[in-house]
Amino acid sequence: MKRRTLLTVGLTGAVAGVMPRPVRSQGGPHRIYRVTFRGRTAVEEGFDDYLAANGIAVEMIDRDIGRDRSLLPGMVEEIRALQPDLVTTWGTTVTLGIAGRYDTGDPDAYIRSIPVVFALVSAPMNSGLVPSLEQPGRNVTGAVHVVPTETQLRAMASYRPFRRLGVLYTPIEQNSVSIVGDLQALSRSMGFELITREFHIDPDGRPTADGVERRIAEIKAAGAEWLYLLPDTFLGTVYDRVVPAALAERLPTFGAAELAVREGGALVALVSRYYSVGQLAASKAAQVLTDGRSPATIPIETLRRFSLIINIDVARELDLYPPIEMLNYAEVLTG
């Protein structure tokens, strides 16, 4: 008996001796440092759900700037100290504050080597984040949420065919100028007339809503059948002036941002869902974390499926109801 016990102990010891020591496996949790602009949104839900669904274990370090960009340099310091596997950012402001422009600026003030994956940057090239969407060429990639302009126009035409399209934009916003350029090119290929008006710029060089009603009346008088609310930052702040003016002129409005239809009172909008944008960003993060790819070679993309949102009360007011088939796939907002 004693002998057997001894033997057992000896064997156990031998087995313990050949067991490998626990090491952190390569598939272990990745550390992600996340910076948000105004707290948690559907983007983060989509991001987290995607990683969970794909069995990618992560350890999240969540930080929020609460719309205060002065907090960003401190976070750059913290990222340097913590050395996470990946940084994710929300929106243009945060992303530029963390990763900086690719061409100018003090390299030491930004994260230049740890991979950064952004969501909700509408124009990564125009804002100087990367030189190319196809080949970012630096430590930054991510998901764009803007619906391509041509897709917007096709949705507009299937709601109500048009021959004249009105647009009101801020001439000092580079992104808006470039979209108007796109619209001009599309007016030739799709065969419509583009009617443009610019927001008033005050002597300080800032756009104001002065004379918005007059400008919209001019657009209507020129025969526009739609007013396109392009993703213009200033326009986004004055929906409450622009949309009622258009409604007064019985000019239907088509929004490129979710806010335009949900709160701004636009008739219809074609948008990317925040949740889906978060998923797309997470798919980029997964390529970095599990496939070991460099963000420099991961193309920046936008979604291929979008959501059509219709304000049925506005439709009733304009007596401009959607084609009945649209009810099969659109989200309809009711009073």
Binding site: I312, A315, Y321, P323, I324, E325, L327, N328, V332, T334
Partner: peptide, 22 residues
Amino acid sequence: GLVGQALAYGIPTDRFIGLDDH
């Protein structure tokens, strides 16, 4: 189902745009 949905949204019966084609 589609027509019922339109009615539920308060779309008048003479404003079912494109229903003939559908």
